[in-house]
Amino acid sequence: MVNNAIEINNISKSYGDVTAVTGVNLNIAKGELFGLIGPDGGGKTTLFQILTSLLIPDTGHAIVEGLDTVKDFRKLRKIIGYMPGRFSLYPDLSVHENLEFFATIFNTTIEKNYHLIEDIYVQLEPFKSRRADKLSGGMKQKLALCCALIHQPVVLFLDEPTTGVDAVSREEFWVMLKRLKQKGITILVSTPYMDEASQCERIALIQDGRILQVNTPTAVTSGFDKTLFAVRSDDSYKLLLDLRTLPFAKRTEPFGEYMHVTTEPDVTAEYIAQILNSRGHKSIEVKPTSATVEDVFLDLM
């Protein structure tokens, strides 16, 4: 029990008629880098707001580092770092002023906890006196992360930190998170990008306010027990339409330059290629492939 940094017990929350999360149960171990994966509107942000004491759940309760998010919210706010999905720093304050402000609010100084943010802050240092709203998307995220870290939180909540950030910055961001994890910080991060799931130690797939599955990214993908092919031809759109008419193809989804086709177990690659050939496709390529988190997700939906 003591090993869990976050315990979520049967939490539900609705806004009027709209249910945001229903009956969520989840345990996250201390020091874990845990990903909450799901599309927009899946209930990720609501869950974050409950865990950071901004929202009171309708039912159930959540414990973060032994503190109840409703009863012990004052103590809780001292030990958690939260980075909301929307950029929430003062746009008219400079990089340094923002950081200093948040440090002071937590009764600490930048110097005292500089070791925590050093790796990230060195990249921001050249823009120290620039106003926060004049920063690029990636820089904004780095500043927000610094501000969330400056009081040395035990648990870090990052709500879609990589949304709207370029691919390189996203990659960098995950490297930073892994470094923070090595410092013993528990990190709960949410993302709508399925390809980022493999960066986490464990992930929870969330959709329409329900947790669909919780596991390690490899266990999630290897647990996919259906036959999956990656198919390509010269006319992608026609290919998609044709594949969707095949009786043995349970699901066809575009996936980069390939179509991912989930089929009956006894279907072979040659068989699919043969049919496509008869429908007039050129330069056909069909190969068995292993499932990604996205395939699993779409299958669970």
Binding site: L54, K78, F87
Partner: peptide, 13 residues
């Protein structure tokens, strides 16, 4: 409006 209140609310202010 600019969302800073959310960040402020999770602090011990």
């Amino acid at each position: 409006e600019i969302g800073t209140i959310e960040q402020i609310n999770v602090t011990p202010i």
